[in-house]
Design a protein around this nucleic acid. Structure first.
Lengths: 225, 225
DNA sequence: TAGGGTTATCGTCAGATCGACGAGAAGACC
DNA sequence: GGTCTTCTCGTCGATCTGACGATAACCCTA
């Protein structure tokens, strides 16, 4: 037993939940399928893992192919392996979560008909079990904002406290007190590093610019609601 | 493209990190391998996913086969898919974490030479990448105790606050103040439900018996150290 | 039966933290 | 200059935390 050729053959794919915040909404990167099954339906970007690459590398490769950007935060979300999730064959898919700043319009991938950012509140019935995966990804992202500094992944390299607060408000769907948010965010060890610069925004007083700090977890965590 | 027969074939397995607390140590369920490669080395229990079962079902099946117990808490830990992690063929393994009460000595599995509980502090160099997986599992378990009521999964159906505290102390490797622990644990909404009964233990005052509550997350969370 | 040992449970108290909100700072615009 | 906007710093009471005293309820021994 337990020798090559003596095991059930599976196809292994990666699926990507790529989230960003743009125009006051949490958006996911979706592609429109050009092939059967689910032809014409929205789906998560993804593809087969190659025989000589690691699963993590496959996710990074697909992400770069779909967004044209590399170096984004990318973490494993979970693995989905129901027997009938793909009607053609037995596929096990490893899902990844990526948080991106407001990127330019995604490049139309090589094999995907069209790619675009869709507000997650308007997404309905994706191909395969991708609706479930997307839901899990959004939930994970919401939880991550509480106890990690990953909200900064939605912002550019330099950002203001108000921009970061806007990210939290949109992802969590709540409104936060600007003064308390400012106090907690600047008080959490290693969350932000000041650049010394300020923005000249229209309207009010210029805001200080920050970069992401080097902390991996937040002490104390930010709380929702 | 994208048709059966036109994709790289993978073997898909599940690996189990089964943890328990016994004799003042956090222990993992390990099996000694009876076949090459890594013959004679300790490894995590696990096995191939069958072609007609879901990955989650495969994990539950293997867990029942190895421990003789079903109904334990079982959650996906992560997927490990480096190309060379198995020297014979391309294997992608989905790891699961299970938290168990102090079970009787595990049954020697059908295909594993021997199975036993090993304190995680004494584990060294498991087969394949199982040391990494075990480390991830222990870290996940430690984090889960903070914000979920899953510490109760290490206890029996009814338990005292002191028994639960002992679990936390052993898993986290710290010592906790009994009075503050009691206050926080009984104060957290839905963590514990009193049975009204008490134990007749040797020594001190009898302790109240509790069962696991119905909360999924802890408010407020318990903090380490 | 009294006293000591042990463990469980409740209280107290100072310091830290949180949410709600006032107030000043620093710009744009009229 | 006056007014608007947004950013940033402070204040205050309620709440929570950790350290630790005190009491309760058992067992054991003399």
């Amino acid at each position: 037993m337990y020798s090559p050729g003596d095991f059930p053959p599976f196809a292994v794919t990666v699926d990507l939940v790529v989230l960003t915040v743009r125009s006051d909404a949490l958006c996911a990167l979706l592609v429109r399928r050009g092939e059967a099954p689910f032809r014409g339906r929205w789906a998560l970007p993804g593809g087969f893992v190659r025989i000589a690459e690691s699963v993590d590398d496959a996710a990074a490769r697909e992400l770069a192919e779909e967004t044209g950007v590399s170096g984004l935060h990318l973490e494993q979300l979970g693995t989905y392996g129901e027997p009938r999730r793909d009607p053609r064959m037995r596929v096990v898919s490893v899902a990844y979560l990526a948080l991106a700043p407001d990127l330019p319009v995604p490049v139309a991938g090589t094999d995907a008909a069209a790619a675009s950012w869709v507000p997650v509140s308007e997404v309905s019935s994706l191909a395969f079990d991708h609706s479930v995966i997307l839901g899990d990804g959004v939930e994970r992202a919401r939880a991550k904002l509480e106890y990690t500094p990953l909200g900064t992944a939605f912002c550019g390299r330099e950002f203001t406290v108000a921009e970061l607060r806007r990210v939290y408000e949109i992802v969590w769907g709540v409104s936060l007190d600007p003064r308390n948010f400012h106090r907690k965010v600047t008080g959490a060890e290693g969350f932000l590093t000041a650049t010394g610069q300020t923005t000249a925004r229209d309207g009010g007083r210029p805001a200080a610019l920050y970069r992401r700090g080097d902390a991996a977890v937040l002490h104390p965590p930010l709380v929702r609601g």
